[in-house]
Design a protein around this nucleic acid. Structure first.
Lengths: 148, 148
DNA sequence: GTAGTTGCAAAAGCTTTGCGCAGTA
DNA sequence: TACTGCGCAAAGCTTTTGCAACTAC
């Protein structure tokens, strides 16, 4: 299957999901989703905006942001950086990982000894040179688990 | 050793590091660093600002941000979320991790099969309920490694 | 004394919101 | 036709910058 065929399959699937969710399958949303699905570079909203503008010059930034939010609510899209709203500082200089509560956005430290160090099965792709493995455990802290 | 003693040790160490780096050891910087070192909650700059203001009501937000940047440049401080400037979107719905280049901030996908799944050595602390393990491999992409 | 630091205010990103018009179902 | 979604502009956050006054060394 070529990349183009694969992309069109995803677009079909996208249109089905829209229908199922009661979302209007507008030209804008389709172009935005196609840009996202075709991109391998984890673009920022700004970058999506630029690419979509090549096809729909009159598109507005607000539409990009609104669509992104809608797609995330539908589970069609994720963020690489769930804690991107503001910087979160960490003065702990010992090796450690993080327990991130997806409900209240709290972050706890997890000392590195408490979890097995991840090891690549084979060398990393594209000659990537690893310096540090950082594990984010996404889940619910005791407080939020109790509420839910 | 009590927490208070531990904190004072860190403050001594901080003052040494400042001296060694040629940084003025101002009252503001000491209070800001103490707040950071004493905090376990990975505070945002805003939150640091509020706590520092209890001790130095005339402190300005700009000073907080400048100090944070200085501390990070010195390796005294890290960010939990290195990619927090703008949202980075991810339409890949297969299980995968991320290769994050710390130089150019590019992100590549790493299929989950290519790395051993991390396993906690014992149950996670504080009753944290894990839903997903997400590995960020920090390092240099081939392009940036070539430049350096 | 000099260089580096602070506080203020203004500005620069990123993201959200309100509203009237337009396109979808 | 009813209603959802779009584009525009304004506003809200977070973070940075320029500059004059001040402080550590």
């Amino acid at each position: 299957m070529t990349d183009g065929q694969h992309l069109e399959r995803r677009m079909d699937w996208f249109r089905q999901r829209c229908k199922r969710a009661g979302l209007a399958c507008t030209h804008q949303r389709q172009v935005i989703y196609r840009v996202l699905a075709a991109s391998e570079s984890h673009p920022s909203p700004e970058s999506v905006y630029e690419r979509v503008r090549m096809e729909i010059p009159s598109i507005s930034v607000a539409t990009i942001y609104k669509s992104i939010r809608t797609f995330m609510d539908q589970g069609l899209l994720q963020q690489v950086n769930p804690l991107h709203e503001a910087a979160r500082l960490d003065a702990n200089l010992e090796p450690h990982h993080h327990l991130v509560c997806t409900a209240c956005k709290s972050v706890e430290d997890l000392p590195a000894e408490l979890i097995e160090a991840p090891r690549p099965v084979r060398p990393l792709p594209n000659g990537f040179r690893a310096r540090e493995f950082h594990i984010e455990v996404l889940g619910l802290c005791a407080r939020c688990a109790g509420k839910g």
